[in-house]
């Protein structure tokens, strides 16, 4: 059976530029799409791309470990999302078309495009290259994840979606920080912090969806 790092090595045909564009697109999806299924899928794919980018900065085993932690986080969020009926309010269950386009989608698309442009602009300015980040594609990925993560965070008060934004922001920061500090203890602490963020937002999503006093659950 292949090890985690071998699995990641098999994906090495994906170039750094492709992976950077991949994180840009997946982070954009987190802003534009309000459907939790698609958002979770985007987050999971994003963690794989980040894992691939991390192989250029960290040893393959650590990069693979970070990708696995990311996928565990997605699993935690998935279980929660299923439990809370993918974020649909109790009264709307069964009545709402599953794939309707909310009116705010156009606005979110514009915000995501602007966020992407700002990230690209920052990443390509010579004076703003992140320290110890040699590859321009990784530089772009860091900026994109941090900018778009913050935007995703700011556009919602819903814990699960906000949590995805926060985790995206942290992914971008960790991708940058991995070049600066490779201490196992710091990496461990950051992994623990990410898991705790995932558990916290999962818990908040559950209690937010729980029926309040006087409200009854539909069969």
């Amino acid at each position: 059976m292949p090890t985690l790092s071998e699995l990641l090595a098999r994906l090495s045909f994906i170039s750094v530029t492709t992976a950077a564009v991949g994180v840009l697109v997946t982070a954009g999806i987190l802003i534009v799409v309000q459907d939790w299924r698609l958002s979770l899928l985007a987050l999971a794919v994003q963690y794989i791309f980040v894992g691939l980018l991390l192989t250029r900065v960290l040893v393959a085993e650590l990069a693979a470990l970070k990708a696995v932690i990311g996928l565990i986080i997605c699993l935690v969020l998935y279980v929660t999302a299923v439990r809370v009926r993918w974020g649909q309010p109790l009264a709307a269950v069964g009545r709402q078309p599953a794939w309707r386009l909310p009116t705010s989608t156009a606005f979110r698309l514009v915000v995501a495009l602007m966020g992407g442009l700002v990230s690209y602009n920052l990443a390509t300015r010579p004076g703003l290259t992140l320290p110890e980040v040699q590859d321009p594609a990784i530089n772009l990925a860091c900026y994109a994840l941090m900018c778009l993560g913050l935007l995703a965070l700011g556009l919602t008060e819903e814990p699960l979606k906000a949590g995805m934004g926060l985790l995206t922001f942290m992914s971008g920061f960790e991708l940058f920080y991995a070049g600066l500090e490779q201490s196992l203890l710091v990496i461990g602490f950051l992994g623990l912090a990410n898991l705790l963020i995932a558990l916290s937002v999962a818990y908040l999503a559950s209690v937010r969806a729980a029926p309040r006093q006087g409200e009854t659950k539909q069969p």
Binding site: A162, L166, M170, A193, I197, V201, V207, R212
Partner: peptide, 15 residues
């Protein structure tokens, strides 16, 4: 149940 504003804001800002 209900508002999660306080907990979420505290988590986000500290992070």
């Amino acid at each position: 149940p209900g508002s999660t504003q306080a907990a979420l804001r505290y988590l986000v800002l500290t992070t």
